[in-house]
Design a protein around this nucleic acid. Structure first.
Lengths: 338, 338
DNA sequence: AAATTTCCTGCAAACGTTTTCGATAAATTA
DNA sequence: TAATTTATCGAAAACGTTTGCAGGAAATTT
């Protein structure tokens, strides 16, 4: 099980040339004789020579690799983002080093350090839910590594960003419920320290305001996972009865779907008695019963835009371009739950 | 935006020591004076020194990185595999370089080459559906890079493997339908050139045989995606009517769920009129209506086992250990669709 | 006092590339 | 013929580490 990698030096030795000549021959340097070039090239081809990426990176002080820190790959939104990033990156000759933080702050710190250690040319990051301290990212930034935040941004660090217009999306979703006749709308919200959490809540409130509906703080419940729904089930049912809830806007699809299941278990008809809308449109929305109305969040586009912004920095090193924030607007996708 | 990475040489220059001394001091080499150690260590700490992973890898001819080639991250099974791999790998100080082939042969070839170029210490791979030629993997193997196949193995290359007992799983699923009273069971199958496709079909046939049910080749339809179901919808409905189908075993969950939706659109009651069972148990099975019975495929465990087998090779270089095949047995998860 | 050992540190090579600067011989020009 | 240009190649440094070896000073043993 010996390692068989043939190096440039090997070729030089065998062909009785110097490494410099072999190197130049392989990349068509004009100084090299045509015959020598042919000789070297065919030989390299024959032995399946491939330059050592490590040596190359070390020498050129450029790895052609970008780092990605992402909360959880299992979520459809994030895996779509990955595809978007890869499609752009590969096209430009970059590799992507993916790190999964698992919504864990400690892991995120380690991952960031690993990316720095590997001297990635740039970093794309969506911070974990549990991250409150940003020194690790600030450190990468101070090291001169270009960064782009997407979806879960950190406002303290000034750099390029790609976000979806959560405020608008939430407003669209809530307005849709109102237009469908809902009067008492429950909002299942994410933690307010997350930008996503607060923005979506604000959009919800704005829609109510624009339609002249009085807001009720009790109708905003912190609940953003499937498990959370079932553990709050009794509380929610009580609330629904007392407040005559006829519409629910959940901060994400899986919460919305779990909510539908909880309601149906209690014999409530959807959408006849209560209408439900989610946020994010993964493929789950199609599979749910009834198929879930939602606002579509563009994962693939998010990835592409983030990578494009990063590329712009990488291709123009030293040049100071103003940081830009790309905002993607989600669109209503009506199905049968409203 | 200058790159600020401080190197070992920098420290040596500033402290007026040689790089060798600094290097040894940092790793507690007994040859170095305690005071010098302290001096170096505190200074390194202060300037946040981190060794350059590239230089390290080049020098030691070991990257502490393993490569992963995976068909599609969006599938729950595969993203679970990733988590399993990472958990073991990180614990042992390895990084994981993830490549997504997107079920595309060309991409798989490029990815394999990229991993070789980066001199990964080992490769974990589940081949794409469209791969019929294995030269790229054989090449990596010949280069002396340890490999482990999981889930979608290639039989031509002799190495360690982790698979789920597809035969048994399919037998369990089909038997379950029979025990629930089904007599005429339709099988929606994957392409037979995939091990998964043929094994599951064989398990289906075996269950029928064991229960003394006559097999009918017409009841085996090649159909393994959601889209495929809808395009075959008319053909399937005709078949179901003619053959008095009362049970369906689909080769994976998303096909099963799409089938349920197609049936329900035609007014067929599940499980009363037709019972449906899938294979693979992603979270979709819980969300579907009705919740889908399925055989649970252990993604996380698959990842852990694959990484363990690889580690065994990496930690015992040169030592010839017989290749082993780890078989994970899926278990029945009954819900409401049967 | 001489010889040996111990303690600490530095030199230099190596990992696999690229690239600057010469160097040599052949070909051209004056 | 002498001077200059051109064509072709190699030596060596550099990227950031590690490590075998050598070496000097101090401490110990003969």
């Amino acid at each position: 099980m010996k390692s068989n990698h043939v190096t440039l030096k090997d070729i030089a030795r065998i062909l009785e040339l110097s490494p410099s000549t072999v190197s130049r021959a392989l990349k068509d340097h004009p100084d090299i004789n045509e015959e020598t070039k042919k000789l070297v090239k065919t030989f390299a081809e024959k032995v399946n020579y491939r330059p050592n990426a490590l040596a190359l990176s070390l020498r050129q002080q450029k790895t052609n690799t970008i780092g990605l820190i992402i909360p959880e790959i299992v979520h459809h939104f994030f895996s779509s983002v990955i595809s978007g990033i890869e499609d752009i990156a590969y096209g430009e000759g970059y590799n992507v080093m993916i790190c999964q933080s698992n919504e864990n702050y400690q892991r995120e710190v380690i991952d960031t350090q690993a990316l720095i250690d590997h001297r990635v040319d740039g970093i794309l990051v969506s911070v974990s839910k549990t991250t409150r301290d940003f020194k690790h990212l600030q450190n990468a930034y101070d090291n001169g590594i270009p960064m782009v935040f997407f979806d879960r941004i950190v406002e303290e660090i000034k750099t390029d960003r790609v976000i979806t217009d959560d405020f608008l999306g939430a407003k669209i979703a809530t307005s849709h419920l109102i237009e469908k006749g809902c009067k008492n709308i429950l909002h299942l919200a994410a933690p307010q320290h997350l930008v996503i959490g607060s923005r979506r809540k604000e959009g919800y409130l704005k829609a109510l305001e624009e339609h002249g509906i009085e807001t009720d703080e009790e109708l905003i419940v912190k609940c953003d996972t499937r498990e959370y729904v079932f553990s709050l089930q009794q509380h929610l049912m009580k609330l629904i009865e007392e407040k005559h809830i006829d519409g629910i806007f959940a901060v994400n699809d899986s919460t919305a779907i779990a909510t539908m299941q909880a309601l149906q278990a209690e014999g409530i008809k959807i959408p006849e008695q209560i209408k439900v809308i989610g946020f994010g449109d993964g493929p789950n929305a199609d599979i749910a019963y009834p198929p879930l109305s939602t606002v579509e969040q563009k994962g693939y586009e998010t990835g592409r835009e983030a990578m494009r912004l990063l590329l712009q920095r990488l291709e123009n090193p030293g040049i100071e371009i103003n940081f830009s924030t790309k905002v993607l607007t989600p669109t209503l996708k009506q199905r049968n739950s409203t």
